[in-house]
Computed example of a mutant assay.
Amino acid sequence: MANGAHPAEGAPVPRGGPGRPRSEAVEQAIVEGVVRLLEEGVPLAELSIERIARTAGVGKATIYRRWPGREALFVDVLRLFEEPVPELPGTSMRDDLVRLLEGLRKRGLTVRSSAMLHNVFAQMKALPKLWEAYHATVIDPRRRLTHEVLRRGVENGELRADVDIGMANDLLVGPMLLRTIMRSDTPLDDDLAERIVDTVLEGLRPQAGRGAA
């Protein structure tokens, strides 16, 4: 992909819908066909299964045997450019949160470096089914993981017992999303994840002389 945003060489193609045993070469051709069309500036709304099949040199039925529709195929393509869900160090809530936010920072750097990816994410908001599928497949699992880390923090006494977990998640993720999506002119410094986590936790940790509840 342009501007250094290609998926890692040899990266596995995510699996789509149910179907017969798959051919990795065929799936790779289909995914590369989608990427090629996107790099050529074809809008997401105009990427029909027929056009993708023609570009990939396969039949439409071949695609439908692997993905139930365009949304599932597009999500699988986009997942190739996502930072993998990180392995958490487990040493503390703070360290786990830093690792999770660092993944968002790196994702922001990838999107910034690729005009194609930037355009794709902008277009997704106008395609409700794709936006919902992307959230269900990519965003929601990461949010649930952050919630689990925060709940463990409450159980371990690292976080006040009265903290709203959903709100705490938004307070942590919000600043990173603001800088990576809405304020692309702001720097994404190497220590940004640490600074965000430490700033938010300063107000959420149990305070001396104050009850945890």
Results as ranks from 00 to 15, higher is better:
Ser113Leu: 01
Val75Pro: 05
Glu71Lys: 01
Val111Ala: 12
Asp76Asn: 13
Val98His: 07
Glu87Lys: 07
Leu101Met: 08
Ala122Val: 09
Ser92Ala: 12
His147Gly: 00
Thr146Met: 15
Val111Pro: 07
Leu97Val: 09
Ala126Pro: 01
Ala122Gly: 11
Thr137Tyr: 03
Leu127Met: 12
Lys106Phe: 04
Ala126Ser: 15
Val120Phe: 07
Asp96Glu: 13
Ser92Pro: 09
Ser92Trp: 09
Arg99Tyr: 02
Leu78Asp: 04
Phe74Lys: 02
Arg70Lys: 13
Leu117Cys: 05
Ala126Phe: 06
Asn119Met: 04
His147Pro: 00
Gly157Asp: 09
Ser113Asp: 14
Ala133Arg: 13
Met116Trp: 08
Asn156Ala: 15
Ala72Tyr: 00
Phe74Glu: 00
Arg107Asp: 14
Leu97Glu: 12
Lys129Arg: 14
Pro86Thr: 08
Glu83Pro: 00
Gly69His: 08
Leu73Met: 06
Arg105Glu: 01
Leu88Lys: 03
Leu73Arg: 01
Met124Pro: 01
Pro86Gly: 09
Ala161Lys: 12
Asn119Tyr: 00
Val111Gln: 12
Leu109Glu: 15
Asp140His: 14
Gln123His: 06
Met124Leu: 10
Tyr134Leu: 07
Leu145Met: 15
Arg143Glu: 14
Arg151Ser: 08
Asp96Asn: 15
Ser113Val: 02
Thr137Ser: 14
Glu148Tyr: 01
Leu159Asn: 08
Phe74His: 05
Lys106Tyr: 07
Pro128Arg: 01
Glu155Gln: 13
Ser92Ile: 11
Leu78Tyr: 05
Asp95Phe: 01
Gly108Arg: 08
Leu73Gln: 02
Ala126Tyr: 05
Gly153Leu: 07
Glu102Thr: 12
Pro86Asp: 10
Lys106Arg: 14
Thr146Lys: 00
Gly108Trp: 09
Glu158Thr: 08
Ala72Val: 02
Ile139Asn: 06
Thr91Tyr: 03
Arg151Leu: 15
Glu102Lys: 07
Arg107Thr: 05
Val149Trp: 07
His135Ala: 14
Ala136Ser: 14
His118Met: 13
Glu82Thr: 03
Phe121Asn: 04
Ser114Gln: 10
Ser113Trp: 01
Arg105Leu: 03
Asn119Ser: 13
Val120Thr: 11
Leu104Trp: 12
Arg142Ala: 10
Lys106Ser: 08
Tyr134Trp: 15
Lys125Trp: 10
Leu73Cys: 04
Ala122Ile: 04
Leu127Glu: 12
Gly108Ile: 04
Thr110Tyr: 03
Glu155Thr: 09
Val154Leu: 05
Asp95Asn: 09
Gly157Cys: 12
Arg160Trp: 07
Arg160Phe: 03
Leu145Phe: 04
Ala161Ser: 15
Asn119Asp: 13
Glu148Met: 06
Leu130Arg: 03
Val154Ile: 15
Gly157Trp: 11
His147Glu: 13
Ser114His: 09
Pro86Met: 10
Arg79Trp: 01
Val77Glu: 04
Gly157Ile: 11
Val120Cys: 09
Phe81Thr: 12
Ala126Val: 03
Thr137Lys: 11
Met124Glu: 00
Arg142Cys: 01
Arg105Thr: 00
Phe81Trp: 08
Val149Ser: 06
Lys125Leu: 14
Glu158Val: 05
Arg105Val: 11
Glu155Val: 11
Leu100Thr: 04
Leu104Lys: 11
Arg112Gln: 14
Pro84Glu: 05
Leu104Met: 13
Arg144Gly: 06
Glu87Asn: 02
Leu159Pro: 09
Val154His: 06
Arg70Gln: 03
